[in-house]
Design a protein around this nucleic acid. Structure first.
Lengths: 341, 341
DNA sequence: GAATCAATTGTAAGCGCTTACACTGATTCG
DNA sequence: CGAATCAGTGTAAGCGCTTACAATTGATTC
């Protein structure tokens, strides 16, 4: 029986209310252009029939969807969750919807998803980081799709963006580390290829090293997946090298969580035997044992600004600016000074 | 200049390749019905023009979108992340896309999102849990949208589902707790109203209590948000009561993480002073200090089965079955026996 | 009372695609 | 050798909406 679901359409509503389809459409989109009386009639009919506008037909006719697409590298951990949540909330306030895809840190998948979201009629796009194929930027340009880049900030870029300077942020943390007497550092990073944020963070450490008269080229660096297990394995590997570091700086909090955990398993005490730092300051960071020293990123603020700015671009009120946010070093127990106390 | 983006359409391709629109469409959807030669021509034209099919037009004409919608209560923590990731991967393998919405644990928002996803032409839906307005089920039924419920399992239900028996699972854990000599339990639960999973878990504990001759009605229960902070505050509240429990059973791992953390801040040692248990066995559980005793849920398996079954329903190969999965109690250091050793 | 105008409403042309059906020429077979 | 069959292609009718434009209405003005 429910084979012919008999879904009510605009025409059905129009017929039921005894008006034209144009009037019904106006009731839905431009109430002010319709008289009180007809509006009431039409709304009645809409309710009676249980009518829901067909999104695809709408998109097609209006060439607007009030939908913003976002492609984030991963949903598996909380790195982007807070920012994205704020992004979505802010979009909602302005009547926009969010469509999320996860690229699983694969550039080709991201490129494909950009096309898919645009094909779906996304009015604008939120992407993470700068580094991607030129063809993708060109495609976006040709289609005239407003695009915001987040979680990063590069002065020379021509794109609209909101984020922070990953390099400078990590450099500040490294400066602190070095000022505490550490000279033997090691790094656990996410894969750098195709990930400007990971690259920037490592660069920040190297710059700090150079500035303090240490050799950046002898810095041990292990690249791995942004996962707890990856951080753990990398940590163990680092601990087996001849010249053990006194501090391991991790590319994000998830890697650091893995490192801390493995340290415990190896019988190493953090921070007495080894100091560990992270990046992002997700909730996890403060409940780790010991609590993690990390770089605090203003996730919610970033999400909100991204949403507002992107909507402004979509509605032609802005042509896309670059917003750089401040980060703060969050000192916690996982990093210990080497100086005599 | 890019004011008129001049997006290529099927017609443009047809003209460029010197064939009809029907043929181009066939090249895209039913290659086997087209000769090698024309296929090559058409593909050439598609590439030359940089053509991308318009999803909305397609959905409209074909009444199929190869898109599955999922509405999950939250993206902020990892509870649903693993299962959803597996769900998406499995969908992809069969050529389906995933559209995710987050209802932030608000029933009205969920109801709205169901309608939005259906309006967008979702071929099928994944929802979490059973408990929701009857109107929503009716709507889905009328529209003929195949729907899968996950993360739960209720024998009497008529809906297709894949999940586990929250009540039985928690009861097993409670049985273990009681068998270790604990008699003074307390519970930190997510909000029960509108959340059958939370309700089931609490019920499981009460059943266990009854079966062991203890009074289920005197069990202290605090309901709170499924967040670390919520768990922490609830824990502190429980510790201030006169009859301190010897074990606090939490509705999920996130709450337990908060509890463990606050215990530490209050100077309480887990598990010597107080035992704590969780539910879900997300990655967090094993890196907590001490590692968390919890109920292991087969997240990935659940996501995979949900995807396969849902696709079968969409493609009329199945009419929707109920799959109940097994869970396992994961004993870790956060729960300690009270018996003399 | 005719003319003018703003406020409402209706008419109908698409938006870019899929697909039922019709058509073509080549191949097969009684 | 004509009929039947078939692979490959084209024709054209929508899918459910929005919106430019036309038409109608009633009120207002002179």
């Amino acid at each position: 029986m429910p084979q012919s679901p008999n879904i009510p359409t605009l025409d059905d509503v129009a017929r039921a209310a005894g008006v034209s389809t144009a009037t019904v459409s106006r009731c839905l989109n431009e109430k002010e252009k319709v008289s009180q009386k007809t509006l009431a009639h039409v709304m009645q009919a809409i309710n009676d029939l249980g009518y829901t506008p067909n999104f695809n037909a709408r998109a097609m006719a209006a060439k607007r969807t009030h939908t913003i697409g976002a492609i984030i590298p991963t949903m598996e951990n909380a790195i982007f969750a807070k920012g994205l949540q704020a992004f979505q909330e802010t979009l909602r306030e302005s009547g926009y919807n969010l469509l999320v895809s996860s690229s699983v840190y694969q550039p080709e998948l991201e490129a494909e998803q950009v096309r898919a979201l645009v094909a779906r009629g996304a009015d604008g796009l939120l992407l993470i980081g700068f580094e991607r194929d030129h063809a993708t930027y060109e495609f976006l340009e040709r289609r005239g799709i407003p695009t915001m880049l987040a979680w990063t900030s590069i002065p020379e870029s021509v794109h609209a963006s909101v984020g922070f300077d990953n390099c400078a942020a990590m450099r500040r943390l490294a400066d602190r580390v070095l000022s505490m007497g550490h000279t033997k550092l090691a790094v656990i990073s996410g894969f750098i290829k195709g990930n400007d944020r990971a690259a920037g963070r490592v660069r920040g450490i190297k710059e700090s090293l150079s500035a303090h008269g240490l050799d950046p080229d002898s810095l041990p660096i292990i690249e791995t997946h942004y996962e707890i297990e990856g951080g753990a394995d990398a940590f163990e590997e680092l601990m087996q090298t001849e010249h053990r570091p006194t501090v391991v700086m991790c590319g994000n909090d998830v890697l650091a969580a893995g490192a801390i955990n493995r340290a415990k398993q190896l019988g190493l005490h953090v921070p007495d035997d080894i100091s560990i730092t992270g990046f992002d300051d997700i909730e996890l960071a403060s409940i780790l044992h010991p609590p993690l020293t990390t770089v605090h990123v203003p996730h919610r603020q970033m999400g909100q600004i991204a949403a507002k700015e992107l909507i402004d671009m979509v509605e032609k009120r802005s042509s896309g600016v670059m917003r750089k946010l401040d980060v703060r070093i969050e000192m916690r127990a996982s990093l210990k000074s080497l100086e005599a106390e």
